[in-house]
Structures are given as C-alpha cells and as structure tokens.
Amino acid sequence: MALKATIYKVNLNIANMDQHQYQDYQLTMALHPSETIERLMVRLLAFARYATEDLQFTQDLFETSEPALWEKDLTGQMMQWIEVGCPDEDKVKKASPRCQQVAVVSYGGAVDEWFKKSPKLKTLSNVTVWKIAESSTQAAAELCQRTMQLQLNIMDGEWDLIADQGQAHIEWTQLK
C-alpha cells in the first residue's frame, strides 16, 4: 500500500511594503511522502515571491513534466513556470519558450555547484534563478505545522516570516 500525502493548511498574509501589495492567501499544500518539510516550506516561499490569485501548486513530484508552481491565463497559456530545487536545465530550457516568466527557487548546499554546471540557464532571457540561504530554509522548516497562520513582512528587500512559535529571516540571493 502506497503512502499518502500529508495535507497542510496555510493562511498566509503577505505585507509587501516595497511594492505596496497586501494580500491574504488560503492555501492547501500536499507533502509527498518522499518530500522534506524544508522543500514544502521552500515551495511556500516560492509562492510568496511570485504570488498571484491564479498561481497554483502542481503535482511536480508525481508529474515530472510539471513545475512546482504555475500560473495560466484564462486561455490555458502559461504565464509563470516556477521550479523548486536544482532542476535539470533542459527542463527549464524547454519551459522557457512556453511561458512569459520562468523562475527557479533553489536551496541547499549543492546550489552553487548546480548553477555553475548549468550554462544553458544563463542564456535564457526570461529565466530568473534565486537561491535561499540554508539557514533561512531551516528556520522556515521549524515554523511548519499542519495548520499554519503565517505573516510575511517584506520591507527594504528584507523578508521576515512570522508564526506564533517564532520567526524566520529569509535571505534571497539572485543568481540570474
């Protein structure tokens, strides 16, 4: 019998003072049995970076042709394609002409080596690559609960994720 995904409910309030955007999101996320809490929280942070009403989590661990998140317009045209981790550069290159914006939100100790070995990513004009500091992903993972009430404050480029049990300072580095 296969293990089932664990469901997480997230009430995410984003207060982005840099862009004067304030929004609440009621999210349901599934944690695949082979996925870590850290990756789940990185998917949540990726959602927060690119948040729109139409941005959706996909079945990326089940469907290798899908990213972690995507946004489609009313006609089904891809607007955003967002990968999490250190994906195969050919998958990102294939997604690039199919949508307006492609993003990779990477994390972990192997990011710098992966990026160095992915020269095709550097040639794609609509691809952005971000790295989240390991200390940030670990601190975010410590905030994880099955039901989360999270406040994300963004001011002067500084990200602070706040929950009842503590907070995590999220450090982003743009690699491309």
Score class of each variant (00 low, 15 high):
Gln23His: 15
Ala103Asn: 05
Tyr22Leu: 11
Ala139Asp: 02
Ser65Ala: 02
Gly76Lys: 01
Asp54Tyr: 11
Gln151Ile: 02
Ala139Lys: 09
Leu55Met: 08
Ala103Gln: 03
Val104Leu: 11
Gly108Ile: 07
Ala5Gly: 12
Leu161Arg: 10
Asp73Lys: 05
Arg43Asp: 08
Cys86Phe: 00
Asp73Asn: 14
Trp172Arg: 01
Phe47Ala: 04
Ser136Leu: 00
Gln26His: 15
Ala139Ser: 14
Asp18Thr: 04
Thr123Gln: 15
Asp54Asn: 11
Lys9Asp: 14
Ser34Thr: 15
Asp54Arg: 14
Leu150Phe: 04
Gln138Asn: 09
Phe115Gly: 11
Cys144Val: 11
Asn11Arg: 12
Leu27Thr: 06
Phe47Trp: 06
Val92Phe: 10
Ser118Val: 04
Gly157His: 03
Ile37Glu: 05
Trp130Met: 14
Leu40Tyr: 01
Ile37Leu: 12
Val111Lys: 02
Asn11Ala: 15
Met79Gly: 02
Pro97Trp: 05
Val105Lys: 01
Asp73Phe: 04
Leu40Thr: 10
Glu83Thr: 00
Arg49Ser: 04
Ile170Glu: 03
Thr64His: 12
Lys72Tyr: 03
Thr75Trp: 08
Ile82Lys: 02
Leu74Asp: 10
Thr75Glu: 13
Ala163Glu: 13
Ser118Cys: 10
Cys86Tyr: 02
Val102Pro: 03
Leu55Ala: 02
Lys176Pro: 03
Ser96Thr: 10
Leu121Trp: 04
Met1Gln: 05
Tyr107Ala: 08
Thr173Ile: 11
Gln100Phe: 03
Gln145Asp: 14
Ser96Val: 08
Asn153Val: 10
Phe115His: 15
Met29His: 07
Thr28Val: 12
Arg98Tyr: 00
Leu44Tyr: 02
Met148Val: 10
Val102Thr: 13
Asp90Ala: 12
Leu45Cys: 09
Asn153Met: 11
Pro97Tyr: 08
Gln26Arg: 14
Thr52His: 03
Ala141Met: 06
Met1Arg: 10
Gln56Tyr: 01
Leu143Met: 09
Val105Trp: 04
Ser96Leu: 08
Ala103Pro: 07
Trp81Thr: 09
Ala163Asn: 03
Ala68Pro: 02
Asn153Lys: 05
Glu63Gln: 13
Lys91Asn: 01
Glu134Ala: 13
Thr147His: 10
Lys93Tyr: 05
Val129Trp: 04
Ile14Asn: 08
Leu74Val: 07
Pro119Gln: 06
Ile154Pro: 05
Thr64Val: 07
